[in-house]
Design a binder for these strands. Structure first.
Lengths: 194, 194
DNA sequence: GTCTATATGGCGATAGAC
DNA sequence: GTCTATCGCCATATAGAC
């Protein structure tokens, strides 16, 4: 692994943990066991390093969902598969999830456009298409947003939910969460189309 | 308004915008038109100031939902009222919403317990109770989480959704969002109990 | 309670040797 | 491509006058 990749990989983890201004170049340098100057040899400044780290983290996610779309399943099965894949990705790559949370929190308009157009557009369009198949008379963007929002909130609220009444260990199991969400959505979409 | 309240009120806005490490005491001092030393007269250190600001921001939210629970409406109408109130609170008090997003992102276990037990427990329990009325055979915590997650994601993703295909101006109207979510949930819960 | 002045240290970034 | 050394600045926090 090249120095540059090592820096990027470590930066993802630390930026996700501490945020942009929370991570200093000195801390990053120590974590990759290099000098600050060595990092500045590979990246012109901190901001560019951050942007490259975000792109690096996103780069391998596109293909995870390909098999769902390319499977010969029914629309209902595809919905289940997509939800399960989404939860798995977020639970397995927590740093990726936290980086996304941070990006959305900062909500910089320029960065949002980059994220939407450059990274998520294709997946979102395919999901809207699926929503249209399942419930043609409903607003596809609203349905797609609900699907993503439902999946994401369970990953996001996990540390909080532990402290509420009614919590059970199975609430952290991806298959349980996915089943609940999928059933909720299919119940509703079926009722509507009926 | 006392100096202390002025500092706390301004700190909420700026911490929500910039995060803990992103806001310096100098910037805060300038924003409230005081010296840094004057702030340190009221708070022992930056961390205590932050924690007091978070508590200050949360302090007046409890009663917003009281009228929903105390209304004589049916369970279905209460669900609609709760969702609408939740969206309104988050859209009207963006700083409160962003502070919450940040807290959940940092996911400090101790802070999560404080948040859950000290601030949200009562509302969450009432919501679980409502979920049990609407769908007795489903897991109340899962349903309650879905309700909150659905409402929150529309507020959260707004800056992103603008950049996706299928976006319409009405997707930012609280009554449209609330109606979509409420219908989605009621469709599903009715289907299940039938 | 608020100020000016300052202590102490970490910050991003660069220069120049190897 | 990596280092040591350093610049200039801003950070948190405090001392002491008013």
């Amino acid at each position: 692994m090249s120095s540059k990749e090592k820096i990027l990989g470590t930066a993802i983890v630390l930026f996700a943990q501490k945020g942009y201004s929370g991570l200093s170049m000195r801390q990053l340098a120590q974590a990759v066991d290099m000098s600050v100057a060595a990092i500045y040899h590979h990246f012109p400044d901190k901001n560019t390093l951050y942007l490259e780290a975000v792109r690096f983290a996103f780069s391998d996610k596109e293909q995870v969902f390909a098999q769902v779309w390319e499977s010969g399943c029914s629309a209902e099965e595809k919905l289940g598969g997509f939800i399960r894949s989404l939860i798995d990705v977020m639970l397995q790559d927590r740093d990726f999830h936290r980086l996304m949370q941070r990006e959305i929190l900062e909500a910089d308009p320029e960065r949002m456009q980059l994220l939407a157009q450059g990274i998520f557009k294709r997946q979102f369009s395919l999901l809207m298409q699926l929503a249209t198949e399942l419930a043609p008379e409903q607003d596809a963007q609203l349905v797609a947003t609900s699907i993503i929002g439902l999946a994401k909130c369970y990953v996001e609220y996990q540390p909080l939910l532990k402290n509420f009444p009614g919590w059970k260990p199975k609430h952290e199991m991806p298959e349980v969460i996915a089943a609940h969400i999928t059933e909720l959505l299919l119940n509703s979409l079926r009722a509507k189309t009926a």
